[in-house]
Design a protein around this nucleic acid. Structure first.
Lengths: 352, 352
DNA sequence: GACTAGCACTATATCTGTTAGAGTGCTAAT
DNA sequence: ATTAGCACTCTAACAGATATAGTGCTAGTC
């Protein structure tokens, strides 16, 4: 970081031009082209010298000796950190993204609409996760009888987030039993903030005496609740095929690992979680992983930009854009943030 | 059909050998290879003559003059209709597919498990749709209050199928209002068998007088119900990347249209519906579309095998396998049927 | 008449060599 | 410090040569 920072103004300008041009056109840049297309007033030879220096510094690279230069991944990083200018969405883009506001009143619907909008606007793959229950403390549950074998499980989090689902019970129950169960579980929930802890305690410790007659029912119910909470945490995906239109992913050899990666829901979850857990530094207010900075080998030729959306001022889930390293970072970052803000707002209206 | 039927036994044997071999190895077959690999007792020259006849009949084709023969799509069709032998799943396969039985007690979970199992067993793309509500007549609905703005909508179909979901209401309600609403809507449902008709009547005709005070609420609720019923009908997908491992889909030019096709949920729905609607003839008890027989241009190089699963003896949704025309038809058909049967059984236990 | 051996023919894939083009690095001059 | 000029390098594109796999046809055999 130190060294690059001391780059001369001219070197910076040249690097900036090369990165911007390559992001746009996708082809290596020769010294002539740099000069002509970006209006530099020095000769190609001068630019060649500068480019040689930039290559030595690890910011540019050459596909082969007689080709032009392309940014290295370190080059993209420097660009993002020091050169990139903030992108201001066009009128149309702003209008396009405002569509989200008119959406329906369910969390999943808001998110699935959001990722569709964002993937269309950025022409990239967008992924999102449904709100993470773990980050919110569970306030209370409600159990409502539908028939003897099925009940509505209503999870009410302290921040106002609600998740409903239908449980199939392993044995028949009546309203009285359900009330006892309801009361007992809520008492337990009050003691333990997180669902994980709750679940762990319930299955490892003996039950309170008064609940012994319902032992099996309690255990089955609590694990169903836990499973339900887990199952709630889905991953949504949109725009896979956009990546396959990029020239660098035209061959199966390049594209396959990524498509395969995207089929593994669990791994995507990990990816989204890892950004926050590792307390990654933010660039321009979003998490940004360029090429090798990604933990997953499959993504070494991609960049991943992500940011959380909030419920009750708590980061509740991530939205992320996956594209080639040759990505229009400024635009993606701006649109991603805008969409994430809209999601935050839509959800807060939902739980007002 | 007439002409092909009159093929000599020997021609049939040769066609059978070529199709089976090509499905297995994926490479054009020369006369020598056919003889050697399939133990024919005539010389390559004889086989060449027969192959020339089969090509004239449109059952074989040549990629180019000096290449071997491959089955044409008409050839696959003849093979499936007249030559193919029933595949008997191996012990391992049977055991593998029996895993479905142990699955959880929700419709979606059963289906998503089923398609994962089937796509792994067949190494192909598998798609399925959740039960079609339209094919079942709605018996009754239940509305359960969760809080003033949200209720559980419990759709009970006459065949025992239940779909639960949570509705967000546009205005606050209390138990009394909900009861009135509940009673009124159920009375309407009794009059009109299908949800579509019900919805249509409700929005086009004036309301009964006693419901006038709740006009907005009724209309909003009924359209939410309708939307919910629609939304319930999801499409599930598994194993997309298997297709990309086939040699014929190694280039983006071939693979892209199909990947793009699979991103459009609505179109997949149409595809699944079309099999039944057009009253397609079944081959070996499943629907089978080979190459150009597919309505969708994108699938002209694919074959699609599908069969319904049943709830209450009514075909309620389709499960289908999508693969290259060079597909192990017998195996896919056998495994598909087996999985579909398991699904039918699992669901009938659910609604016993 | 059915089958087959043999041969001429054909199309593809692969390798080699050649050329044109784009771009570099270096040197010497300004 | 900059730049013009030139030798050098690598690739992509094309052309020709060769090997290979397979065909269709003819003429001869059982």
């Amino acid at each position: 970081m130190q060294i690059e920072y001391r780059l001369s103004q001219r070197k910076r300008a040249i690097l900036d031009a090369i990165v911007r041009d390559y992001i746009l056109h996708g082809e290596p840049l020769g010294s002539r082209t740099v000069m002509q297309r970006h209006g530099f007033s020095f000769s190609p030879a001068t630019i060649r010298n500068e480019m040689a220096d930039l290559e030595e510094a690890g910011l540019l690279s050459q596909p082969h000796t007689s080709a032009g230069r392309i940014p290295s991944q370190k080059g993209y990083r420097f660009f993002v950190d020091h050169l990139m200018q903030v992108y201001i969405p066009t009128q149309e883009e702003q209008q396009f993204m405002r569509r989200l506001q008119q959406t329906s009143r369910a969390v999943d619907a808001v998110l699935s609409q959001a990722i569709r909008i964002l993937s269309e606007a950025t022409q990239s793959i967008v992924i999102a996760e449904t709100p993470r229950s773990q980050t919110h403390s569970l306030g209370r549950i409600e159990l409502l009888l539908i028939d003897h074998y099925s009940v509505v499980l209503n999870l009410l989090y302290k921040n106002g987030l609600r998740r409903h689902s239908v449980l199939q019970l392993p044995q028949a129950v009546n309203t009285e039993v359900l009330q006892v169960l309801n009361r007992y579980l809520n008492a337990q929930i009050e003691r333990f903030a997180s669902v994980d802890v709750l679940f762990h305690r319930m299955v490892t410790r003996p039950l309170a005496r008064e609940m012994m007659p319902y032992q099996q029912l309690v255990l089955d119910t609590i694990s169903e609740i836990y499973a339900q909470v887990q199952r709630d945490e889905k991953v949504m995906l949109s725009g896979t095929t956009y990546l396959l239109q990029e020239p660098e992913f035209q061959t199966m050899e390049e594209a396959f690992p990524i498509l395969n990666f995207l089929e593994k829901e669990r791994v995507i979850h990990e990816l989204l979680h890892s950004c926050q857990n590792n307390n990654l530094q933010k660039s321009h207010n979003v998490y940004c992983l360029i090429g090798y900075e990604n933990t997953y080998q499959e993504l070494h030729k991609c960049s991943f930009i992500a940011t959380p959306y909030y419920i009750d001022n708590k980061a509740s889930g991530m939205i992320g854009v996956l594209g080639p390293t040759r990505m229009y970072y400024a635009k993606v970052m701006a649109l991603l943030q805008s969409v994430a803000n809209n999601v935050t707002q839509s959800l807060s209206e939902l739980f007002g």
